[in-house]
Write a protein that binds this DNA or RNA. Structure first.
Lengths: 327, 327
DNA sequence: CTGTTAGCGCATTCAA
DNA sequence: TTGAATGCGCTAACAG
């Protein structure tokens, strides 16, 4: 392995000089610079990031903790992060919790010592997690969840849910159901549900208990939720707000199987603008959350913070309603 | 930042002793060990991986280079890699080329100095790439492409394509079309096409030129390919083999839009068992490539190689045909 | 069983 | 404009 020392010897300069041309710092004569550059070129020398990091306390690595990489939201976010970070010479160290919440804490500890910043695509805002984040002196940005005293890039989940609900009401629907997830996920579970309820309330529309179903984050769970709803309710809703596209798609798939017609018998709205949403039948009305942009924005903010530049503590991204055939 | 030196002082031992308990190496008296462990516990000390790596020349990091993280194949592979690697304390450094082939080479150079091994989810086997791989002394494993003298985890693309084609022929189809990709992708472009052709030939079935379309890796491209096919051919095929699910889905979406019936007017088979394939209408017959297992297997082999244990140079994974409504 | 010593590859004083 | 010296945090002989 060729090191800075080898380069120095081959170019007949000291290691300091090599270091100076490497980092474009301090004075180097054109002559010396040229010799060093030639040797570097010839040998294909690449400095050791480990030695450099040890010395400078900067790693040029950002840790990314996410619950899964198999669904589109986190994948898109990571793509956005990667694009922006690589522009500035930063790399991504990936930590996949596979939906295991304890691992979020573990990875936070693990990454702490070896990255310049952490991006957490969060699924909850539990006190243990928030406390750990505050203990860590590293810049950390949360994506998808809002929390006190932490940098966040979020979506306006509450208003999105209200708007979706209002949209259905405007279309003439009065009996509207809801498929959500556990409220420990504040953004997806709590805020979207609250938005739905508040909008219904604002229009004095009643909600049967069976119309509200709780699921987990997968298509099958949407299927089951709809099965429960159909089996339990006295009067069926004419429209459903589902907090994710996948939940909506699972639900629709149950209804189709039972011979219902979507959207005639029941209209659907999802959230996420997954690729799936475009190609299912009927195509799904949904909300584009611009996840890739979220990733880019998070990258920009965390880099600004790392460099002690001005950054925004809270960013709320806009969204776009995509109306398709499911309503 | 608390270092090994601090721990040593607080526990009244030398740094070596701390290092010994940290790494479970050499002899340490129970007494000393206990004191050290207590201090570590109390301070929440975590050793610096950078210092350690600099010293040991091991990083416990595997670089993963992939063309995109937005489609299911690579996502699943990365999930599998992550699961297996994390079991052994290895982390993933992610390099996303966004389908830019030059970046594969760049990242190879970049990662070379800072990881213990590289997993390349490959899209081609171009000589420049293969040469670069051979220049690098690090363990490298290719996923999805076969190449001489390189560790590979691959699928049996050729026989899969033959089997799919045979399946359609058995169903009574005689006019079968094909939507492929550029043959520079040897696995997906060349081998799958060759399998298709060889099987057709074996049954003495003719193929019209317009039945063979070349696309790129996305749904829209499948749509366009089918549009071209329909517009150009004198006699329409009654079935199509598409080299990916997404291509098939794009093609089907064109046909549906034009009022054709799938599978009555045209039957379809894809490859990849994407989640999409299950929920489109009609649900798509496809092949499950078990990508997550590929990731796990690649991780196992590369770790074995890193540890100089016995490893397999070539692994060919099995697959599973999933028959659904599109045929 | 334990401490001393040396050095991994680099950046950064400080003197020259 | 340059080089010598120092140390980042850690492990690995080696001697005790």
């Amino acid at each position: 392995m060729v090191t800075i020392k080898d380069i120095a010897e081959m170019a007949s300069v000291s290691r300091s000089t090599v270091s100076r041309v490497l980092n474009n710092s301090g004075y180097v004569s054109d002559d010396a610079r040229k010799r060093v550059e030639e040797v570097i070129e010839k040998t294909g020398y690449v400095p050791s990031r480990y030695a450099k990091s040890l010395r400078t306390k900067k790693t040029k690595v950002i840790g990314v903790i996410l619950p899964t990489i198999q669904t589109e939201t986190p994948s898109r976010v990571v793509t956005g992060l990667g694009k922006e970070l690589s522009k500035h010479g930063y790399q991504i160290l990936l930590a996949n919790t596979n939906h295991n919440k304890e691992k979020e804490l573990e990875y936070l500890d693990l990454l702490m010592r070896q990255v310049d910043g952490i991006v957490l695509i969060a699924t909850n805002t539990k006190p243990e997690l928030m406390q750990k984040i505050n203990e860590i002196s590293l810049p950390i940005v949360l994506i998808g969840q809002e929390a006190e005293g932490v940098m966040c890039v979020t979506y306006d989940d509450y208003h999105v849910a209200r708007e979706l609900t209002a949209f259905l009401i405007e279309k003439g629907h009065k009996r509207i159901g809801f498929i959500g997830v556990d409220e420990s996920d504040r953004a997806v579970g709590y805020l979207r549900k609250k938005g739905f309820f508040d909008e219904m309330m604002a229009h004095h529309l009643a909600i049967e208990e069976a119309w509200i179903q709780k699921a987990v984050f997968d298509i099958d769970s949407g299927y089951t939720a709809m099965e429960n709803m159909i089996k339990c309710c006295s009067k069926r809703p004419t429209a459903i707000v589902a907090v994710t596209d996948r939940l909506a798609i699972g639900a629709i798939s149950y209804l189709k199987q039972q011979g219902f017609n979507v959207p005639k018998d029941m209209a659907f709205i999802g959230i996420g603008a997954s690729e799936l949403s475009q190609y299912v039948d009927p195509s799904l009305t949904t909300v584009d959350y611009k996840n890739e942009k979220a990733g880019e924005e998070a990258a920009r903010q965390i880099l600004a913070r790392i460099r002690s530049e001005k950054y925004q503590e809270k960013i709320v991204l806009d969204y776009r309603l995509i109306i398709r055939d499911s309503v």
